[in-house]
Write a protein that binds this DNA or RNA. Structure first.
Lengths: 205, 205
DNA sequence: GTCTATAATTTGATAGAC
DNA sequence: GTCTATCAAATTATAGAC
């Protein structure tokens, strides 16, 4: 019954800690918080908290993992992926601390191959991109998006807008992150049959 | 002749240091580098380097400022702002260290009002957004972009794509950051007269 | 399983000689 | 103006008592 990487570590309690940590980061924000701060917040000593996680990075990554889990369960599995993305982004606007944690961790982990969360981010982006590209292709098949548009590229744009708007939103919480994604999507739908996909290169990267 | 904030600090030498630091970060990368590391690289002791900058954050911000300066001088002042953005982003793909430094500093500074670089980022984004929105409006006046599209919002999208693609590019340097911006721009131009601007809210945020 | 205590570093910043 | 030396603080991680 033990899970890979967390053998003998009291999984139930671990989950409980993560649930609490999620709320704490959400409410109190994340300002490069230390393990000790988070430990205090969840009602454990620093050593007590690290008993459940191998390192600081593993701890914070676990929180992000948990966040994804919660988002997934809150979200309609049958919904269009773009709608799901919009839903998650709208929800993000109510969890500043998690946006902060995600933004800083994503930069740290993606820019360092040795970071404990690097591989997780690789998988996460690959997964989201694949789903979004699928949604784009579905619209292309339905004749609603110009088939000349590179679906993978448009998927990357949607993810980039989601990530990039977080910075602008942190600078000014009045900014509507979801509306930016909607604008891109609307433009893609409106540009059907206008040759917007025309480009020199045909590669996807 | 002394400048605000750098009185009695040997401006010429400071500039020389920044020029070197720019190259160093560019070449050697930036992995949350310490002042000491950078000091070694520019041929000064840690104390010697901090003689020219009030703090670590001020130092790294100065590097980013310098980068902008160099970009501005490398760039055609009369060019369309979107073309300029593309030019800068294409150039970024050749300076991984600076992208890394920018990404992590922007997250740290925007998420913390007390960060020494916070105000600079506020100004920087306001400036870039204003220029891009102007470029959008020019196209709208020329009938090349649907006037119903919110120019400020499209400007935010362009900036968000630029920022967001940096993360995807750090995960995979094969990714073409500029091509994503081009796609958005092409979609905007292609969607003219198709009602893509239609939306419930009319606010810009 | 949780805590106390502490190890082992590291870092930014300052004081003061030269 | 630059360096050496050092400070003071903070952090993660671990060892070991209970």
């Amino acid at each position: 019954m033990t899970r890979r990487g967390s053998y003998a570590k009291g999984i139930a309690k671990r989950e409980e800690i993560l649930a609490t940590a999620l709320e704490v980061v959400d409410r109190a924000g994340f300002r490069g918080a230390s393990v000790r701060e988070l430990a205090d917040a969840v009602g454990l000593s620093q050593a007590g908290l690290l008993h459940y996680f191998d390192s600081k990075e593993e701890l914070f990554t676990a929180i992000l993992r948990k966040r994804d889990e919660v988002d997934t369960s809150r979200t309609d599995p049958g919904a269009d992926m773009v709608e799901t993305l919009l839903d998650v982004v709208r929800h993000n606007a109510e969890t500043p601390g998690l946006v902060q944690l995600f933004a800083s961790t994503s930069v740290a982990a993606t820019s360092d191959v040795g970071h404990p969360a690097h591989d997780w981010f690789v998988d996460r982006y690959a997964n989201v991109l694949a789903h979004l590209a699928g949604a784009v292709r579905a619209r292309q098949d339905a004749g609603e998006i110009d088939p000349a548009v590179d679906a993978d590229r448009l998927a990357r744009v949607l993810v980039a807008v989601s990530d990039g708007m977080q910075v602008q939103w942190m600078l000014d919480p009045e900014v509507d992150m979801a509306a930016s994604i909607e604008l891109v999507w609307r433009l893609a739908l409106a540009a059907v049959g206008s040759g917007a996909g025309a480009t020199g290169a045909s590669g996807t990267a």
